[in-house]
Write a protein that binds this DNA or RNA. Structure first.
Lengths: 195, 195
DNA sequence: GCAAAACATGAATGCTGACTCATGTTTCAG
DNA sequence: CTGAAACATGAGTCAGCATTCATGTTTTGC
């Protein structure tokens, strides 16, 4: 249940080694295909060593999902921090998210697979985002920066766009550059389809 | 590779029994957790019987993904068929999709898990949709019914919205009724966020 | 009604891979 | 410097589960 915290510098280094190896291996092979021996081989340690730091295969996976939540929050918060308007924040947030997926594709694949491997962690990841998103949209609505509307539904709709654009244009086929995707999607978010 | 086609009425019935049982079991437990004996128990047959009709666990799963593609296409085509405008087609399509997810939640979970279990089938499922979607958006753009734009990016953005709304408001928590979700999301699609 | 094909059974097989543990090695506080 | 705690090793264990198959039963075409 509880993660075992290393007490020495060597221990911290090993734990980190194993986590990074797990990130690459899970990202490449997926949860089911990835074996403990794949991970320890990649980390250049013995199989038993992994069990000093993690209670099992599922725990190391969950730890990566939590880590991803933390990193995404930091990346997005930083990108959006001093946007002049909510709409501009929307644009910057989408751009930052897609760039983040491009930088850590394995980690993002892991988050998506968490839906099936660790549904609670997955829900926590997106629900946390939705909560923050909703607050921002409500505030912007109050301030008259955007039309008012149901921000719970909007938040999930907008997150859904971002997720799927990341999947298609970053993870799957990089045939369109990220700035183009951001510009086009943002235009849709801003103005809709209506003439 | 090739599916074995039953030759008698009894065989067709059995195969169908097994598929429906697999739909429920995979939907409830996910691919990894679901065992062949779970499926055959649910179908009330012997384990060996499953192998008369399917070459293995993965094939029965893929068959369900293909089936889902077929059913979704039919449901959406029917719903959208005689919409007066592209925007109205958009609204009806979204509504039909969410209703479909509500009717066959297990089947939809299976499609999403196919991303990891059978990536080819998953890509085929969404790419087929994207192609049709793109054609519709382009035609509507030509006809002046919507603003013109990159329809590949738009198609994936709109599919992403639908997927995620289905996940959150249909599969996960039915705390908002589907019509409200459709109305609010459609407003976003039509007009965007701008005041 | 009969032979052959199709279908059904479920216990037995065999493999894969997560996890353990007995035995070392390294680190570090005092 | 020293002993205890922390860390490292990897061969071996074991359970779970997909798949097979030898033996029956049912259906079908004629």
């Amino acid at each position: 249940m509880d993660q075992i915290r290393p007490k020495t510098r060597r221990g911290q280094k090993r734990r980190e080694q194993i986590l990074r190896a797990a990130e690459r291996v899970f990202g490449r092979l997926g949860y089911a295909e990835a074996s403990i021996s794949d991970i320890t081989r990649e980390a250049e340690t013995a199989q038993g060593t992994l069990y000093i730091y993690f209670s099992g295969k599922d725990e190391i996976f969950s730890e990566l999902v939590r880590e991803m939540g933390h990193l995404t929050r930091i990346a997005l918060a930083g990108a959006v921090a001093d946007a002049p308007t909510r709409l501009e924040a929307e644009r910057r947030g989408l751009a930052a998210f897609l760039r983040f997926v491009a930088d850590r594709p394995e980690l993002y694949r892991i988050v998506e697979e968490a839906r099936f491997v660790d549904p609670k962690a997955y829900e926590a990841y997106f629900s946390d985002f939705a909560r923050a998103y909703r607050a921002n949209l409500d505030a912007a609505g109050q301030a008259g920066e955007i039309r008012t509307g149901d921000s719970e539904i909007r938040a999930w709709a907008l997150m859904g766009m971002a997720k799927t654009l990341g999947e298609r244009f970053v993870l799957w086929r990089r045939d369109v550059d990220i700035d183009t995707v951001v510009a086009e999607a943002f235009d849709l978010i801003e103005n809709g389809l209506r003439t």
